[in-house]
Design a protein around this nucleic acid. Structure first.
Lengths: 205, 205
DNA sequence: CATTAAAGTCAACAGTTGTTTACTAAAAAT
DNA sequence: ATTTTTAGTAAACAACTGTTGACTTTAATG
């Protein structure tokens, strides 16, 4: 599993890895593979499980971090990015295979992300303004946050390992974007439309 | 090129396709491949160029759409999703290879996205509140919007082609998320922190 | 210590891959 | 009408792939 993760982290897609490459990297003969996994699909799913286990651990860590209280958001981002840096290859794998992997792998990752979104929405519902929103809207906000973090994660992992300046810039950008989302959430009214008639989204994507 | 796009749209990663598979799908002998591309990398980059060309066309269409003015945002999303549906395979390719592809392919897509973000930021700067923000913040907002759309696009393309209910739900969710971002942008003040001390991001991802 | 289970090895297989070279049909340009 | 360019073909190559069955070593268990 380490060998596979390592190869993915070095820029290759999991689906393009051959069984023999992996055993070679692991320093083992091809036939040994079958002592551990029926086929590559099974290995892929095992990798999703394992990396998500790490991810859950991270989230628990961020959640329970004692914080100065004032700008908890920036501190959360900082904790998050630290952990990501300590487990680059695992997150590399997740980011890469989220949309790029085989169908069962994508499904497994989507299921995990869905779980995170639900948990996060539950967290939201304990705060003043948010406890008055319907669950659907809370999940909408949560998934917005999660997708933002995941996208930024992908960009972050593209950077060379030792480029603290660029990393710092991305980290700050992420903090700002999360702040925008929170501000938007605070201004959000379930049934309302935008304040004035015109909107900003002329070139939406 | 059509053959390759078709295979990617059917759930495989481009990097896992073999030259022979593609020529087989194209109804041509393997050696013919070399009449058009030096190797698979070159084909991949050509595919990025071609699909981004389509994407730019779409964006131009969304931009110039005459709109009721009231909820332009939802209308933009609708136009966008229509176009995506008419060119599913192209967007499938982009979504899949954005983080999942080989290094040069990822770089090419990142460059294109960066271009979209800059254009969108320029659009923003013509609106009341936004023309007072520094360019950096405008790009931060623009990339938040773009990433949100792209993520949702990935989820949308996972759905079976004929499932209008689920598509409608995602489309509505996307509209809401964009509205949240716009609201957040309107509440955004360059140097300010969040209104009150506590934040919402305890379980950030 | 003896036994059993788990992990690893070796050699072989049939199938697939990327790439080459020399040759041919069709289309475009002269 | 003839030359030239472009796109496609056929056959062959060495290299690599997934998977197998029969053995051997290592580790854990009773």
């Amino acid at each position: 599993m380490d060998a596979a993760i390592r190869e993915v982290a070095s820029g290759r897609g999991f689906a393009s890895l051959s069984l023999r490459e992996i055993t070679r990297e692991a320093g083992v003969v091809p036939a040994s593979f079958y002592r551990h996994f029926r086929d590559m699909d099974e290995l892929g799913l095992a990798l999703v499980d394992e990396t998500c286990r790490q991810l859950r651990k991270l989230i628990r860590a961020v959640r329970t971090t004692k914080l100065p209280g004032n700008n908890m958001l920036a501190a959360s981002v900082s904790t998050f990015l630290h952990y990501v840096n300590a487990n680059r290859s695992a997150f590399h794998f997740l980011s890469r295979e989220r949309y790029g992997g085989s169908t069962p792998i994508r499904a497994a990752i989507a299921r995990e992300i869905r779980g995170f979104v639900i948990d996060l929405a539950a967290d939201f519902s304990e705060y003043p303004h948010f406890n008055q929103l319907p669950r659907e809207d809370l999940e909408m906000l949560a998934s917005l946050l999660v997708n933002t973090v995941v996208s930024m994660l992908g960009d972050l992992l593209e950077l060379p390992e030792d480029h603290p300046d660029a990393k710092g810039a991305l980290s700050e950008k992420l903090s700002k974007q999360m702040r925008v989302i929170v501000l938007g959430g605070l201004a959000w009214q379930p049934g309302k439309k935008l304040p004035s008639g015109e909107s900003i989204s002329r070139g939406l994507s």
